[in-house]
Amino acid sequence: MGLDFEVTELGPTDHVEAGETAPEFTRPLVNEEYWEDVSLSGLLEDGPVVLVFHAMDGDFPATYTWQEIRDRGWDEWDAEVVGVSVSTPYEHETFLREWRGFDRFQLFSDPGNGVAEAYGVVHDLDGMAGVSEARPSVFVVGTDGTIEYAWAATEYPDFPRYEEVEAAVESL
């Protein structure tokens, strides 16, 4: 398959690994109607959480990732699947509303990229001093706050190992 875009090596990352405690955070959690500040620990009270770090809304890899997640039926799990990106709540709201089936998910807004930094998945954008976003990555967090599965891209674009994430969630 011929790619119409350049693949960029991201280099190594020192991200949190399976068996470690997930870094706690509170950020605006957005759905297509509203947003409110929610903590990771608050979500974990209702069950496991799958954190999907993605590029800013509207970027091809973010859209493709969420289409795949939607098509695989991840919204039917007993785990809460939520996104995390540098996009603002307004951008998230529009993203969720414009794409059919995305309204079944919620997205954390992290414009300062602090959550990605805490998880060790920051990607500095080439040629833009001080501008970064999260590298594509997925963390499955058990109800006790332990990382049960961790994956982070080593090149961009790259996409989650969907089958591995599904196996990790099934094993909870």
Rank of each mutant, 00 (worst) to 15 (best):
L96K: 11
V82E: 03
S85K: 01
G130E: 09
V81Y: 05
A134Y: 01
Y90F: 14
S87M: 01
N113I: 13
S109I: 08
V84L: 03
V140G: 05
V82F: 08
R135H: 03
F95K: 05
V84Q: 00
S87C: 02
P136G: 04
F102D: 03
V81R: 02
A134D: 00
V138A: 02
S137K: 03
A116W: 12
G127F: 11
F102V: 08
G114V: 09
V81H: 04
V84M: 00
G130W: 04
F105H: 07
M128C: 01
T94Y: 14
R104P: 00
V138T: 09
P136W: 10
V141M: 01
M128R: 14
S85E: 02
H123N: 15
Y90N: 06
V122W: 03
E91P: 00
G127W: 11
T88P: 01
Y90W: 12
V81M: 03
A134H: 02
V138E: 05
F105D: 04
R97L: 10
H123E: 14
V121F: 07
D124E: 15
V121E: 09
D78F: 04
N113H: 05
N113T: 13
H92Q: 11
Y119F: 14
E133Y: 01
S87H: 00
E91H: 08
P136N: 11
V140R: 05
E133K: 11
A79C: 04
S85N: 10
F139W: 07
Y119C: 13
G114Y: 10
A118T: 03
E80W: 00
E80N: 01
E98N: 11
V140H: 06
V115F: 06
V131N: 05
A134G: 13
H123Y: 15
